[in-house]
Amino acid sequence: MDIAKELIAQYGYFAIYGMLALGVIGLPVPDEILMTFVGYLTSTSVLNFKLAVLVSFLGAITGMMGSFFLGRKLGKPLLTSHGKWIKLTPARLAMAERWFERYGPWTIVIGYYIPGIRHLTCYFSGISGMGKRQYFLYAGVGSLSWCIVFNLIGYYIGVIT
């Protein structure tokens, strides 16, 4: 987290955008802690709340779209050829695809609040062949609500301390 603090201190909103975009793709960035810290910075007037939410949303949605397209282009062939290493047989993959086609849109919205699941839903949306517009709608709702909630948590932590 010290690196995140340094990056935000030096690059401000650009650092928030970049860290969230890379974190959603799957790099080890503590997204929830980052968002709470950004919210805290808005309570101390270091950052503007509305701009912080907007930049956070744009970073998150950029990462989600990147993951979606990676899943669409590389996901199925990669899982088909190397899935055996993680005990993912073609039958299990087909079962996961059917489940995701049925519940996928809401999984994207709800899964955004669960670390690890957030990353998988993005990739599985692409793998399952979900439409870009549908994905963008549900991913947008999930990421915007997530950004607002965690920025508010950080903001109120800053207000009460």
Rank of each mutant, 00 (worst) to 15 (best):
L51S: 09
L120M: 13
C122S: 15
G154R: 04
A94Y: 06
Y11S: 02
T121G: 08
M19I: 03
K76D: 04
E97C: 09
L51F: 12
E6A: 15
M64Q: 05
D31V: 03
S81K: 15
F150N: 02
Y17L: 09
G23E: 01
G71S: 05
G18H: 04
F124Q: 07
T44A: 10
F136K: 00
G39D: 02
D31N: 06
Y155D: 03
L79S: 07
I160C: 13
G75V: 06
V53D: 06
Q134H: 07
M95P: 00
F124E: 07
E101K: 15
C122T: 14
V109Q: 11
Y112E: 09
F100R: 11
G63R: 02
L7Q: 08
V149A: 05
V159E: 13
G63C: 02
Q134C: 03
M35S: 04
Q10W: 08
T44P: 09
G116D: 11
R92F: 11
M35F: 00
Y112G: 13
Y103L: 14
K84W: 15
S125I: 04
G154P: 08
I157A: 12
Y135R: 01
V46Y: 12
K132V: 13
E6R: 15
L27S: 07
L120R: 06
I114P: 10
A21Q: 01
